[in-house]
């Protein structure tokens, strides 16, 4: 009898330990830990102005969602992120392949590449606004220009690592150029393109906010600037939260399934 009770307790404890120790359990634990530290930290600020509690932020989020057009500003920012992202990926992948495959092109473009790679984001933004005016196009070009050099680095590396032996197969069997490119060459680049895309989206949305802060009259960056001037920290955190949630949805809903599809054959 006593032995049986001990067994039940032991298995229940064991089960609990397994749940907490599982990856999902650890993620939940990590999240709860964040909330706890945050809540604890708010006690150091009795005014609630400098660091609002998690529930205050949620409440503010709800308010802005319903009354203050949060979705509109979020949508505008997302559109800019998407435009700059696709622009930067298309141009960056093309340049990366060119520079990886053609030595002459690499030598010619390398200096420019290093220049843009090391140009501070802020400088590019200021120059774009000064030269092209405070327009939507200038904003998106500024963001794309910041990202293109990073895409080039990754894709050029991938192009250099391409297996020439497989391309020789295409040559021997006289596969046409289009099929060679799409079916023999590009699949070898997918891991690199995916890596560039992942890093790209995270970098781009951060730069988009700066661009909006400096020269746009809508979008998350513009709103954050406004809240900063009003010292509305709860709203700043509410917008941040909303955007982070959206970026996580993109990561798990778009990027991860795409990557699984491209690497199915492994």
């Amino acid at each position: 009898m006593a032995v049986g009770t001990v067994d039940v307790a032991a298995t229940a404890w064991g089960r609990l330990r397994r749940i907490i120790g599982s990856p999902a359990g650890l993620r939940i634990f990590s999240f709860v830990l964040l909330l706890s530290v945050w809540s604890l930290a708010t006690t150091a600020d009795p005014s609630g102005q400098v660091l609002p509690a998690p529930w205050v932020v949620l409440d503010t989020l709800w308010y802005h969602l319903n009354e203050e057009g949060l979705l509109f500003h979020l949508g505008v920012t997302l559109w800019r992120v998407a435009a700059a992202f696709f622009g930067a990926m298309v141009i960056g992948v093309a340049l990366g392949i060119l520079m990886g495959a053609r030595r002459r092109a690499d030598i010619v473009l390398d200096g420019w590449h290093i220049l843009f790679l090391n140009m501070p984001a802020l400088v590019l933004i200021i120059l774009c606004y000064v030269w092209f005016g405070l327009t939507e196009v200038a904003a998106i070009v500024a963001v794309a220009l910041n990202k293109i050099p990073n895409v080039v680095v990754t894709v050029r590396e991938g192009t250099r690592a391409v297996d020439r032996e497989l391309l020789d197969v295409a040559r021997v069997f006289r596969v046409d150029r289009r099929t060679t490119f799409l079916r023999f060459f590009l699949p070898q680049l997918y891991p690199y393109v995916m890596a560039a895309a992942r890093g790209g989206i995270a970098l781009i949305w951060k730069i988009v906010l700066v661009v909006e802060l400096l020269g746009r009259s809508n979008g998350v960056g513009f709103k954050l600037h406004e809240f900063f001037q009003l010292f509305d920290i709860a709203a700043v955190l509410a917008y941040t939260l909303a955007f982070v949630v959206i970026m996580m949805v993109i990561e798990y809903g778009v990027m991860a399934p795409l990557e699984r599809r491209f690497t199915r054959w492994r």
Binding site: E165, L166, D168, R183, W265
Partner: peptide, 8 residues
């Protein structure tokens, strides 16, 4: 070596 395309 067989040189097959692993993604096909």
């Amino acid at each position: 070596t067989p040189r097959l395309l692993p993604w096909m």
